[in-house]
Nucleic acid binder design. Structure first.
Lengths: 137, 137
DNA sequence: CTAGTTGCAAAGAGTTTGCATGGCG
DNA sequence: CGCCATGCAAACTCTTTGCAACTAG
């Protein structure tokens, strides 16, 4: 099946590209794009096709029953493992060296070939960790 | 708020315990427990409270728009990183040594404190990797 | 011109909630 | 007994789908 390049698909791609690594719901994306003339259904349909291409992932958050989408299509993003802080919600890129190291370690010790683009490590980032330490009397 | 120990909550806990690391939808769980006398709403309510306690996580799969729940409450499970194969869907436990190693590596190189129980590395397991190699002419 | 895409509205699926009843402590 | 939990059904929210109109190639 051929894929046409429509105005709507382009708005969506542009938007996702400029918000890479952010987690957004379909409704939020549609709202942000209101004015660009793209309907909610088109957002869903295009997200689904991007997901099939592996450029977008679905994410869930503990306690929050919504589904978020995250764009990781840029080459730059696909080469890193993502570190997601559960305190501040930000996502960081693991540096290339560490990523390679982990990749090799897991492959050697576990015989498991990890998928960088789709792996997200949850935890607490340095800043929040510090904040946590100091606030705890 | 106090928590009562009811027959339904017990059935659910027992079921989850004996299916740790499996990914199941609320409907599947309710279906498996039909006969135990637990309603779908009770399943949802109890899963939500288990999620708040951090014993259960919500999972999404690429291409599949359902939400799956995974029990990882057992101590044993919380100490490992989980490796999930996107081919066969199975989840494996990373051995303790490698888990510690990764944990330290990420902490030192990235200043990030990972959360073992909530981290799932996606990829392809050894068996599926082999199968893939041979099938590809 | 043909086939993929869009918007809208309706249909569906999954999840949550209100309320009366039942059960734990 | 008091309060939390359960069932059932209604209410909702989010997502998908049907269809006619539209547009890229």
């Amino acid at each position: 099946m051929k894929v046409y390049s429509t105005k709507q698909r382009k708005s969506l791609s542009d938007y996702l590209l400029s918000h890479r690594d952010e987690e957004m719901t379909a409704a939020e994306i549609a709202a942000a794009l209101r004015g660009e003339g793209i309907s909610l259904s088109a957002v869903y349909r295009n997200l689904a096709s991007l997901e099939e291409e592996g450029l977008v992932q679905r994410i869930t958050r503990a306690g929050d029953r919504k589904i978020f989408f995250r764009f990781s299509g840029a080459e730059e993003c696909r080469e890193h493992i993502h570190l997601r802080c559960r305190k501040c919600g930000k996502t960081f890129h693991m540096d290339a060296g560490t990523t390679d190291l982990l990749d090799e370690t897991v492959a050697e010790n576990c015989g498991f070939k990890m998928d960088r683009a789709e792996t997200v490590i949850n935890g607490v980032c340095g800043d929040c960790e510090k904040a946590e330490q100091t606030s705890k009397k």
